[in-house]
Design a protein around this nucleic acid. Structure first.
Length: 349
DNA sequence: CACGCGTGGGA
DNA sequence: TTCCCAAGCGT
């Protein structure tokens, strides 16, 4: 804990021990928002989004009252969009059923949308200083090394959680939780752990055995297949864009995107063209303007980008026309921002 | 319980 | 270029 008092990172959602000593309170709303944004996401990526969200919506009631599309547009680019949908659902439950106050216990938190075992424990510990054990990827790595657990993840998760629980103190459990995660993020890193400056180096079994860098072991991952598809960027003579609201569930669910066909996996050889599958205006002369490559969690995608001027009075069979004044490419997920950028040269009239 | 679900940065 | 990964959750 002395290490944390000296080395805690100053993050926008964090109340440092020194500030807390002067009476600054930890806001559960900000803890919750930051923890959801940080799920599988780096501090560097979250920083800007957290500042933007708390400026637009300072309290959970403000967020709960916002329109879905506005929140999704602000989340665009951060990824894992189910988090944004669950974020709104959670804000509305807390506002309507809990009077705008987050519950202070792990069990009650666990019942809320988008809050799983890690986030429930993190909020209980950090916002309410409950002695809950927080187990994220950092804690798994630190415990695997400190106790030289050689069983690979995810099988070792249960054992690592037991080790972590045994170390959780009664005093300042919130600071302790953040300290272990800071340790994992800045000292006990995946590649080149800085064991020389680690406050736990004398207690570390993996360091003693010289295998710290090899832990935690992980099961081999499957290779990512390649999928191919086409995206159609159409504009009316007035400059309106033809876009599509994606279904609420699934990949990029609830986000705005360009029309196009299914993204189909192909064999190692036949990487031919993709036809006009999914073309939203078959009678129009589409021109290929580029190709976009993008990698998702479980596949690589190559999208052929086609652009066209739509006829005057065009009535979209699917999707909708977004007037130029209302269109902001920043509201698109990253894949579709790339598609928009690839089409840019087609509009140099 | 295994899988689906994004993105950007670093080695 | 390619691979790995980062404060997980829902189904």
């Amino acid at each position: 804990m002395a290490w944390y008092d000296r080395h805690a990172r100053d993050l926008p959602w964090r109340v440092l021990p020194a500030a807390r000593a002067e009476g600054v309170r930890t806001d559960p709303y900000r803890v919750w928002l930051s923890e959801v944004m940080l799920q599988q996401t780096t501090v560097a990526a979250v920083d800007r989004y957290f500042r933007r969200f708390t400026t637009l919506w300072p309290r959970v009631e403000d967020l709960a009252a916002e329109e879905d599309a506005r929140v999704m547009a602000e989340w665009a680019g951060l990824g894992y969009y189910a988090r944004a949908r669950n974020l709104l659902a959670c804000a509305r439950v807390v506002t309507r059923d809990h009077g705008g106050r987050f519950p202070d216990g792990r069990e009650a938190l666990l019942a809320l949308p988008g809050i799983g075992p890690y986030t429930a424990a993190a909020i209980a510990a950090i916002a309410f200083d409950r002695p809950e054990t927080v187990v994220d990827g950092n804690v798994e790595r630190v415990m695997a090394r400190r106790f030289a657990v050689e069983e690979p993840l995810p099988g070792a998760k249960k054992l690592l959680t037991e080790h972590a629980a045994r170390l959780t103190p009664d005093q300042r459990p919130g600071d302790y939780a953040q300290a272990v995660m800071d340790l994992g993020a800045t000292i006990c890193t995946p590649r080149n752990p800085a064991c020389g400056i680690c406050p736990w180096s004398d207690d570390c079994a993996a360091r003693a055995k010289g295998i710290a860098t090899e832990l935690p072991r992980k099961m081999a991952k499957k290779p990512k297949p390649v999928r191919l598809g086409t995206a159609y960027v159409g504009r009316t003579p007035e400059g309106a864009w033809l876009l599509e609201d994606r279904p609420a569930r699934g990949l990029l669910g609830g986000m705005l995107g360009w029309p196009g066909g299914e993204w189909l996996e192909v064999g190692p050889e036949a990487e031919g063209d993709t036809g006009d599958d999914g073309c939203p205006a078959p009678g129009t002369a589409w021109q290929q303007v580029g190709e976009v490559r993008h990698t998702f969690t479980h596949f690589h995608l190559r999208l052929v980008v086609r652009a066209a001027r739509l006829p005057a009075g065009f009535n979209p069979p699917r999707g909708r026309l977004v007037p130029a004044a209302e269109f902001d490419p920043a509201a698109l997920p990253t894949l579709f921002r790339k598609v928009h950028a690839a089409s840019r040269d087609a509009w140099t009239d």
